[in-house]
Simulated scan of single mutants.
Amino acid sequence: MTGQTVAGSATKIEARHVTKLYPKPGWRSKAHTSVLDEFDLRIETGEFVSLLGPSGCGKSTFLNILAGLESYNGGAVLVDGERVRGVNRNVGVVFQGYALFPWLTAQKNVEVGLKIRGVPRAERRERAAEVLKTVGLAAAADRLPHQLSGGMRQRVAIARVLAYEPEVLVFDEPFAALDAQTREFLQGELLRIWESGGVRKTVLFVTHSIDEAIFLSDRIAVMTRAPGRVKALIDVELPRPRGSAARSSEEFVHIRSQVARILEEEVRGGHDH
């Protein structure tokens, strides 16, 4: 799969002219800070898109809006043509913090989401075991979070989301706190899981890393500084499946240069504000 999307696929996620305001501090203040302004983005079914931009540009804010964890002030956010209103069970979220229950084993942590959804106990056990095997943690099923490395904990967090089979996966800098070697390993693991499934999930991945965005994505949406909107959409024409050799390819280096130039414009103050 190269380029933007699978032939014949339909729009899965659409953001139209989204505006998000936060009130400024002070109980008497009526002023607002604009975080997102005229934010537009369309993601096709089965596409992997990364959101990249300067700190504070609203990347995580849009992710939270898409997941139904935050409201917004204007425009529309749609999943399968339906406006997002509150938490959507078809959207699974993986955060930077693992958010694992410290008193539960890896297996039981993965079962939590299934239990909330009313999945019977035997089926919960079977599905959790299967997904732990998928992320390479079958041997660690009975370990508690403190007995796992940071990379293993993040894989448990990914497994927990995969277990209930959401149609959309959103990641908020899930590998940012990990060392470089573990981070690259997990990027490869994430692609292996995503590329090996019968039907690819639609993915929105928030990151600060240009290399991470290129390695993972079909397209990269580069944002302006706050108030954030999409400044450029970059196609990543690297063949799949992708291995570590992709990182040293001519196309990879070319895209890195292109994205870095756009980001540098924004960090230095933006040429169109």
Rank of each mutant, 00 (worst) to 15 (best):
M1F: 11
M1T: 15
T2C: 02
K12Y: 07
E14A: 10
T19Y: 15
K20D: 09
Y22K: 10
T33V: 12
S34W: 01
S34I: 15
L41H: 07
L41P: 08
T45Q: 14
G46E: 09
S50Q: 09
S50P: 12
S55Q: 13
G56W: 08
C57W: 05
T61V: 03
E70F: 08
V77T: 14
V84F: 07
V87R: 15
N90V: 00
L100H: 07
W103I: 04
A106R: 03
K108Q: 10
V110N: 01
V112Y: 11
G113V: 09
G113H: 12
G113W: 02
L114C: 03
I116V: 14
E126V: 12
R127A: 14
V131M: 00
L132T: 13
A138N: 12
A140Q: 08
P145Q: 09
R153D: 14
R153W: 00
R155H: 01
R155Y: 00
I158S: 00
L162N: 11
L169Q: 05
V170N: 02
P174M: 03
A180G: 00
R183M: 04
L186R: 13
G197F: 00
T202I: 05
V203H: 01
V203P: 02
E212H: 13
E212P: 09
S217R: 11
I220Q: 00
A221H: 01
R225C: 00
P227I: 03
A232H: 13
A232G: 00
I234V: 15
L238R: 01
A245G: 03
R247Q: 13
S248K: 08
E250G: 04
E251C: 06
I255Y: 09
R256P: 06
Q258S: 12
A260D: 08
I262K: 04
I262C: 10
E265R: 07
V267D: 05
D272E: 08
